[in-house]
Amino acid sequence: MSRIVHVNGEFLPEASASLSIFDRGVLFADAVYEVTAVLDGGLVDFDAHQARLRRSLAELAIDFDPVAAGLIDLHRELIRRNDLQEGLVYLQISRGVADRSFLQPANIRPSVVLFTQAQTLLDAPAAQSGLSVITRPDKRWHRRDIKTTQLLYPSMMKTLANEQGADDVWMVEAGHVTEGSSSNAHIITADGSLVTRPTSEDILHGITRAAVLDYARETGAEVIERPFTVAEAQEAREAFITSATAFVTPVVAVDGVPVGDGRPGPATRRIRAHYIDHSRDRLRY
Rank of each mutant, 00 (worst) to 15 (best):
A273S: 13
D255F: 00
F11T: 07
G260C: 04
T159L: 14
L283H: 07
F46H: 13
K147N: 11
V195E: 00
S101E: 13
R80N: 06
T245A: 15
I62F: 04
E173R: 15
A253M: 08
S101Y: 02
R80D: 10
P110M: 06
W170F: 15
T159F: 09
I93V: 13
R55A: 12
E218G: 11
A31V: 05
G42E: 03
Q150T: 12
S193F: 01
Q128K: 13
H6W: 15
Q119Y: 14
R54Q: 13
G70Q: 05
L74H: 14
L39T: 03
L152T: 07
D73F: 07
T199W: 12
I241M: 06
M171A: 08
V133H: 00
R237H: 11
G41Y: 06
H142L: 12
R55P: 06
E14F: 06
S155I: 13
A253E: 07
S129P: 01
I188C: 04
D138W: 07
L194S: 08
S56G: 09
A69I: 07
H75N: 08
H6T: 05
R237V: 02
P110T: 09
P258Q: 05
L60M: 12
I21N: 09
L91Q: 04
V89K: 05
D23H: 00
R270Q: 11
V7N: 03
G9Q: 07
V252H: 00
R143E: 12
Q50P: 01
L39I: 07
Q50N: 06
E34G: 07
T36V: 15
H176L: 08
H6S: 13
A236K: 07
D191H: 09
E201D: 11
A190W: 04
A68Y: 01
H6F: 15
D47A: 14
H274S: 09
I207R: 04
L88M: 12
V252P: 00
A253I: 10
W170H: 12
E173H: 15
E34L: 06
G220F: 00
V248N: 00
E34Q: 04
A127V: 10
I93A: 01
T178H: 11
A210C: 10
I62S: 03
T208W: 06
S183D: 01
R144M: 12
E86G: 01
A166K: 10
L27Q: 12
E77N: 11
V212A: 06
S279N: 01
R269H: 14
I224K: 13
I72W: 06
E10V: 02
L160D: 10
T36A: 15
H274Y: 14
S56I: 04
